[in-house]
Design a protein around this nucleic acid. Structure first.
Lengths: 150, 150
DNA sequence: CTACATGAGTTGCATTTTGAAACCATTATG
DNA sequence: CATAATGGTTTCAAAATGCAACTCATGTAG
């Protein structure tokens, strides 16, 4: 498990993994870039067309993601020049994106609105994430706490 | 499951739950506010001291979170005046925050750095989130895809 | 070979958002 | 009564964002 970061980052809160994650990927466009990368987008134009983000901003975000080891950028010999691909660290954001998606499905749509959904290869809906304790009941914010570093 | 939103939002991508979630909570300070709310922060001063965010920005984010039904704001009779608390929709972000935390633990720390950790009431570390398919293997971006709305 | 199109950006501003500091209004507290 | 704490708002400078236009390299049709 290599570190995702080669460039130096000014951490908001150096001992908190949530804060470090937010420093790296807690940006509106970055999260949507990763969503689209997981859905098959791979070139600058892919991302630009899907997101409708300004080109300079897209350029900046792609560069930062490559610097931080979340995307890789490879030159292709023929045809399309550059291909962005998720690194292992980028692929590993899958659970986080799914968590966002499932929260959005539950809380950002009214009952009569329809939305896209995530399905497996058989076309079956992906199940809901949960965090079972050893006793089987789901853990929540109320049943857990942060143990600060010593 | 009531909708989280009372105020109108300009959705970046109205049919995508990830995009709607990002529109509501995909902001650096918002995610850290929710983290701290889950860790016991409840007043303006709590959040300000923990985050070190500018007061006007904090004020704006708290207002937006209340507008969108993620936090509630209640006046207290005696002592501290206002108390912010997570609504049901806010509590339900627990899994998403944990996903961010676990990704951060895996990819934003070098081996020799230490970080805070999330433990249950018994002091046991919270297990890693995963998304098992019906066959038992974890689902990934490669084994799932987005089915667009019809 | 020339003209045009495509991909992947960069540059130059105008607008927006952010951040820091100061200010303000209401309770408490000595 | 003077002072402090709480929960903000205002002001203004600096940074980030967004849009349009420009660049530059390759590929493609005539």
């Amino acid at each position: 498990m290599a570190a995702a970061l080669s460039a130096d980052v000014e951490w908001t809160d150096p001992t908190c993994p949530v804060a470090r994650a937010v420093d790296l990927v807690g940006d509106r466009w970055i999260l949507l870039i990763i969503r689209d990368a997981m859905d098959g987008a791979s070139t600058f134009t892919d991302f630009h067309q899907r997101l409708g983000v300004a080109r300079n901003i897209l350029s900046d975000r792609l560069r930062r993601l490559v610097e931080h080891g979340i995307l890789s950028k490879e030159a292709q010999a023929v045809g399309k020049r550059h291909v962005y691909a998720l690194t292992e660290a980028g692929e590993d954001l899958f659970i986080a994106i799914v968590a966002m998606r499932q929260w959005g499905e539950r809380h950002a749509f009214s009952p009569e609105e329809s939305h896209s959904s995530l399905v497996d290869r058989a076309g079956e809906p992906v199940p809901e994430l949960q965090l079972p304790a050893t006793d089987g009941n789901p853990l929540t914010a109320a049943t857990t706490h942060v143990r600060k570093v010593s």
